[in-house]
């Protein structure tokens, strides 16, 4: 300890104090303040850039989600439109079919009615022909009666049989 005190040099202490305090002040002005300020500015820039990037990423994700949603909606709409078209087509076919059916049945009915009336006409014709025939038969029978009575009866009978078959 005594040696330490003896070794203590006031001049060195004076210069060290003067130079060191001067150094601290000069370095503060010309070095530490600008350096630390620049580093801090850079750090806050980096922080901002990182948060901006995160925001951009979030926006991008939102945008993508929106796109996905739009796409989904469009797909659903297309699906619906297709379904509607299909239904429309089916309906049209269905109605066309039923119309055709109706038309056909109408035609059939008309044809049937025509056939019926033709038939009736034919029957009426037939009736008149049968009448004429029976008259001619009756004529013939009347004529035959004169010759052979038995034969006449037989003829009438067979002719009548034929007539009923008609």
């Amino acid at each position: 300890m005594e040696k330490l005190i003896e070794q203590f040099s006031l001049g060195l202490f004076f210069w060290q104090l003067l130079l060191f305090v001067g150094l601290v002040l000069l370095l503060k002005k010309f070095a530490w303040k600008p350096i630390l300020d620049a580093v801090e500015a850079r750090e806050s820039d980096i922080k901002e850039a990182i948060s901006a990037a995160a925001d951009a990423k979030k926006d991008m994700e939102n945008l993508q989600a929106d796109n996905q949603k739009l796409l989904k909606e469009a797909r659903a709409e297309r699906e619906a439109m297709l379904k509607e078209a299909r239904e429309l087509k089916n309906n049209m076919i269905e109605s066309a079919k039923s119309e055709a059916q109706e038309e056909a049945s109408k035609l059939v009915a008309q044809a049937q009615a025509a056939i019926e009336s033709e038939k009736k006409a034919a029957i009426a014709d037939l009736k008149s022909v049968v009448g004429e025939l029976s008259i001619s038969i009756a004529e013939k029978v009347l004529r035959e009666e004169l010759t052979d009575k038995a034969k006449q009866e037989k003829l009438v009978e067979s002719m009548l049989d034929n007539a009923t078959l008609n």
Partner: peptide, 19 residues
């Protein structure tokens, strides 16, 4: 002291041109 002053003030100046 001179060395520190020169080195660090030069270093500080560089930050003005580039971060």
């Amino acid at each position: 002291s001179l060395l520190l002053l020169i080195v660090f003030s030069r270093m500080a100046k560089k930050y003005k041109t580039s971060a």
